[in-house]
Nucleic acid binder design. Structure first.
Length: 275
DNA sequence: CGTCGCTCCTGGATGC
DNA sequence: TGCATCCAGGAGCGAC
């Protein structure tokens, strides 16, 4: 599923094709996929694309003037850059028409959303307002990370998945970062030592940067594709995610699968000790 | 207020 | 072989 590295890859793709294009209309074939008001829709029409950014797992397309288009892909969403004349895509839920191309929002599981709004309202409307720190920003230091987690009464994995604490990490990179830092995902966040906070902070940044360099993770049966419909490559570099019953690359012990924070979780009982 | 569990969805996997 | 049930999983929301 698209997490920070996948969304960053898509945003880069969109930046090179959509900047300067003019947004014309949106057509929703799945009504719940698009959230807007007639007023907002009217205000968005025929405005040039000024910038495209990522915030957490959100894609934010800012139009000249006052329009903002926000997309969240959730589990299975895709945004595909197509020609206007190209045929309908499988699971296509909405079509954003620009003057020179057509952006198709596709989503097998119908969890994803497209919002049409304006600069004053889009952060509250979409939930972007509630997001925590960006893990690849300069503000995200070992110290801010430790301060964020110190009082928390839940597992470290639940904290990594909590978008109000840190924005952009999902199930794949939570497991990968915990393995990289040699920390068991079901440890209580407050129980980590200063050194472990530091190690985990570095592991998070390393894993996210490496995945961005590989254009994200596309599982064999997974749904993530970039804006051209192509797979990423980080699945070849995963150490634990979806590798249960396979040997740990470090110690050869078979990795085990458990449930932490309600999510399928894979870790190595030897490399990721209880304390 | 913080944390937990339920819900939304689909299609592939599993069970009988 | 075929039909029914189970399950993953991000995030909002109600319950406690």
């Amino acid at each position: 599923m698209p997490e920070l590295p996948e969304v960053q890859t898509i945003v880069s793709d969109l930046q090179s094709h959509l900047i300067g294009a003019h947004f014309l209309t949106i057509e929703a074939s799945h009504l719940k996929a698009v959230i807007s008001t007639p007023k907002d829709l009217f205000r968005l029409q025929a405005k040039g694309v000024e910038s495209i950014q990522r915030r957490g797992k959100f894609i934010v397309i800012v139009l000249k003037g006052d329009g903002v288009i926000v997309i969240h892909l959730r589990m299975s969403g895709k945004t595909l850059i197509r020609q206007k004349s190209d045929p309908i895509e499988p699971h296509e839920r909405a079509r954003l028409e620009f003057d020179r191309l057509s952006l198709r929002f596709c989503d097998q599981r119908k969890f994803g959303r497209v919002w049409l709004s304006n600069l004053a309202d889009y952060q509250a409307l979409t939930g972007i307002a509630r997001l925590g720190i960006e893990p690849l920003s300069t503000d995200f230091t070992p110290k801010t990370f430790a301060n964020l987690l110190r009082g928390k009464k839940k597992t470290i994995k639940a904290c990594l998945l909590d978008q109000a604490l840190i924005a952009g990490i999902g199930n794949i990179y939570a497991d990968e970062a915990c393995f990289e830092a040699r920390i068991r995902p079901n440890r209580l966040a407050a129980s980590l030592s200063p050194k472990e906070y530091k190690n985990l902070h570095m592991a998070i940044q390393n894993v996210l940067w490496l995945s961005i360099q590989s254009r994200g993770t596309s599982r064999p049966d997974g749904n993530y594709r970039d804006a051209h419909g192509k797979r990423g490559n980080f699945q070849n570099l995963l150490k634990v995610y979806r590798r249960h019953n396979q040997p740990c690359f470090h110690c050869k012990t078979l990795l085990i699968r458990t449930k932490v924070a309600g999510r399928g979780t894979v870790h190595c009982v030897e490399c990721q000790r209880k304390n």
